[in-house]
Design a protein around this nucleic acid. Structure first.
Lengths: 106, 106
DNA sequence: CTTAATGGTAAGTATTAACTTACCGTAAGT
DNA sequence: ACTTACGGTAAGTTAATACTTACCATTAAG
């Protein structure tokens, strides 16, 4: 499974998107992330694991706190996938419609 | 739910990603999309519905065939979300670290 | 007109995955 | 040393969603 596949998978869940967006403004410890969310703290830990494996976030340990923050790698992997996907698709469609034009002229 | 939320949700499923990528090269009818996939044709129809609602694909009817093709709107919505998200996050972090610097100097 | 092909929707089942409680280890504070 | 705060993992349950079969409507072909 590629990085972008992991990332799409991770952001497919609304709770994980909420966690992801909580980290938008600043890095946060697990308790702070869980605060306000309608699920238990272990559930948050499990979501963090998925987001980390997708390289959408990373963590640094400070004392007994695990501070999570956004990770450029996973975000960029998705964006690049979408960019390339769309560019290639456009090129394919252009080639297809030109081939169709040629068929008509014969 | 915004367009990009719908789109992230839709591409969270591996089967839907497979369908999405099948349309990369050219528009296809439902039977052609289902061909080769290890699931029933109605299941494919249900996935197509989700992808369509996310504006990742669109359809044009030709006789009794429904031809599905990629839709720029949903793809762009995701890409723009990611772009903006990352740019803003960078700006936030920069502001944060500058504030931390100022605190030190006091 | 009849038959075959295409494909959407409904209802129910099965599988996935999100979630809970319980538990443990580590670090910080008293 | 004891206690509190932090947070990861395991095992089991619950809830979400992917899937199947059955059915129907529409269009094309015979």
């Amino acid at each position: 499974m590629s990085t972008s596949e992991h990332a799409f998978n991770a952001l497919g869940d609304p709770t994980r998107r909420a966690i992801f967006e909580k980290l938008h403004d600043r890095p946060l410890a697990v308790v702070a992330i869980a605060d306000g969310l309608p699920i238990s703290r272990p559930a948050v830990s499990q979501h963090l694991k998925v987001l980390k494996e997708a390289k959408l976030i990373s963590l640094k340990t400070e004392g007994n706190k695990n501070i999570y923050e956004l990770n450029r790698e996973g975000i960029l992997a998705m964006r690049d996938y979408l960019d390339k996907f769309w560019d290639d698709a456009l090129a394919n469609f252009k080639a297809l419609s030109e081939a169709a034009e040629n068929d008509k002229k014969q």
